[in-house]
Design a protein around this nucleic acid. Structure first.
Length: 309
DNA sequence: AAGACGAAAGTGGTTGA
DNA sequence: TCAACAACTTTCGTCTT
């Protein structure tokens, strides 16, 4: 049954010039070069589970073994050619049998997972993410594959989404911009898949705390530890006055860092802070204005100004 | 001349009828 | 499903240092 059905259109470019590559076991679109689908992975079901009945059916059936077996990307390979020299005739045929098996089992899913996890590793090390986050992200990605959530979107974007989610869960947030730069996937796309994947997998993620960004931003701006802790204080105060809910955490982090730097006489321009935080000057100004109004920081700033004279 | 400020119009996502 | 809405951005002109 697997492979009995071919997709008719390339989901990427809509082209119909699809052909089946036997050795690779992949369907490839001649128009855009996209690997469209593997013959072993044919759900003729919508990837979204709109309807609960369909979802039930799918779940009861359970995922094929091959989905779960290869999760860590560490599956053992039956040896390569070099090993052959040491094998006698009997063993040789055994070797070929095993290899054939392996090739059967090695659907593109496994290949995909291996590829995906190595991509994940690459991005994660580029961003210097801790191992725990990387692991979490791998887990999320694997789950996503098992649920068939990758269908219709690129592997890379799902990897990026999984990483973003993992970062959030471990309170080491990276901005979408950073993820975007590391993975060369558009910000929008990452956000989309991130939302989709977390929703489908029922992963709950708390809104990230602006204070979690401070350390990174402040070191990027070469600000003193005093300024850093001052800005965390400001954020805490702001949270008490409910200035933070509904606002983008990066904007708040940026503004508080800007104010803190101002007060501690380490002034940075709005542009500098804005660039580091990945927001615009306008956003900083808005948050900044609110901070001054609600937290009566004017005095402190005036003090600094007097000193400067 | 550079930085800060703010108004106005546009974007993408959420929410509620 | 669609329109209103909030947050944020882009762009641009003006004021301040």
């Amino acid at each position: 049954m697997a492979g009995s059905k071919f997709v008719k259109k390339c989901p990427e470019c809509g082209g119909i010039n699809l052909f089946y590559h036997h050795e690779k076991g992949e369907i490839i679109c001649k128009d855009c070069g996209l690997v469209v689908e593997d013959k072993m992975v044919d759900f003729d079901q919508e990837w979204r589970e709109f309807d609960a009945e369909a979802a039930e059916r799918k779940r009861r059936t359970g995922a094929p073994m091959s989905y779960t077996q290869f999760d860590q990307g560490l599956g053992t390979d039956v040896g390569r050619k070099a090993d052959l020299y040491q094998l006698g005739g009997k063993n040789k045929s055994k070797y070929f049998r095993l290899r054939k098996w392996q090739q059967r089992i090695s659907t593109a899913i496994e290949r995909n997972l291996k590829l995906a996890l190595s991509e994940l590793k690459r991005v994660s090390s580029y961003l210097k993410l801790p191992g725990s986050v990387e692991e979490e992200a791998s887990r999320i990605y694997t789950l996503a594959v098992q649920k068939g959530l990758v269908r219709g979107r690129s592997m890379e974007s799902v990897v990026a989404g999984a990483l973003y989610a993992a970062c959030r869960r471990h309170d080491v947030p990276r901005t979408l911009d950073e993820l975007s730069e590391a993975s060369s996937i558009e910000k929008k796309e990452i956000g989309r898949t991130y939302r989709f994947v977390t929703r489908e997998l029922g992963i709950k993620i708390l809104p990230s705390n602006p204070a979690d960004y401070i350390a990174r931003f402040s070191s990027a701006l070469r600000l003193s530890p005093e300024t850093q802790s001052r800005s965390v204080e400001i954020i805490e105060k702001a949270q008490e006055v409910e200035l933070t809910s509904g606002r983008g955490p990066t904007g708040i982090a940026a503004a508080s860092l800007y104010v803190a730097a101002l007060i501690n006489g380490e002034k940075r321009t709005q542009r500098e802070v804005a660039d580091v935080a990945g927001v615009t000057e306008v956003t900083i100004r808005n948050r900044y204005k609110e901070l001054l109004e609600k937290l009566k920081l004017e005095k402190e700033i005036k003090k600094v100004k007097k000193k400067a004279l």
